[in-house]
């Protein structure tokens, strides 16, 4: 474990916490007769969270962590896997089933089809993998799918004119997590013998590049001290 990997995992964890915080705020705002301004913003506008992306992440973790009971790496790994599995499925549950959270979800804007991402990733995983076994193909599938799972969210952000702070932070933290993982791979490549994982690296690089555009607007909004807005 190096500092880049740890920092990457922590930003990933923070992104999940930001999302759970947002859901919690939406829940607790409802029913108040005089909502605070944050409640007002969250309840009156759509949440800006893409259910499609969240469902894809749940699928990513479900297929990647099949080894949770068979291969033991460390207590840290097992706990983190449980956290990511549990949080991704509960976020999906909240957006689909919780009556208040569901109301803040803008279904008409979030129109991306899962199918267009899942099928090519599955085919690619069947063709390009390190070992043709059930677990390994699904692990590879999860890498390919994770690389593109943010697309529905980025498209939704571009459509939603009003990006609230928490949604912006969420996407930023996810992007930071990917960038830190690249630093982790570079570090491991030079410090560990035989550390080569081409499939992980290339899909991870593609994933990080998808955030480039968002990062550009995120940092310029910080620099100019204005609210984050993506061009139409």
């Amino acid at each position: 474990m190096n500092i880049f990997r740890l920092a990457g995992d922590m930003t990933h964890l923070m992104s999940v916490l930001v999302l759970l915080l947002k859901i919690h705020t939406i829940k607790s705002c409802a029913g108040k007769s005089y909502p605070c301004s944050l409640c007002f913003i969250l309840l009156e506008s759509s949440s800006g969270i893409s259910l499609k992306t969240q469902e894809l992440y749940a699928l990513v973790f479900a297929t990647r962590y099949l080894d949770i009971f068979t291969d033991f790496i460390s207590v840290y790994n097992t706990i983190m896997k449980l956290i990511f599995l549990g949080s991704s499925f509960s976020i999906v549950w909240y957006i689909r089933r919780h009556k208040i959270v569901r109301r803040s979800y803008d279904k008409d804007q979030d129109t991306f089809r899962h199918f267009f991402l899942v099928l090519p990733c599955l085919l690619l995983a069947l063709i390009i993998n390190e070992k043709f076994t059930f677990k390994e193909v699904l692990w590879t599938f999860s890498l390919y799918l994770e690389a593109v799972a943010i697309l529905p969210q980025l498209i939704l952000l571009q459509r939603t004119r009003n990006i609230d702070n928490l949604t912006g932070q969420y996407v930023f933290l996810l992007g930071a997590y990917r960038a830190l993982y690249i630093l982790n791979w570079i570090y491991r490549y030079f410090t560990e013998p035989h550390y080569v994982h081409w499939i992980t690296w290339i899909s991870g690089l593609v994933q990080t590049l998808l955030y480039a555009d968002f990062f550009y607007y995120y940092f310029s909004s910080l620099k100019n001290n204005v609210k984050l807005k993506l061009p139409a």
Binding site: R5, H12, D67, D71, N77, E136, Y181, N184, H194, V196
Partner: peptide
């Protein structure tokens, strides 16, 4: 050389 498939990352 034989590549061992090890997944120790998340």
């Amino acid at each position: 050389p034989h590549i061992t498939v090890e997944h120790d990352e998340l």
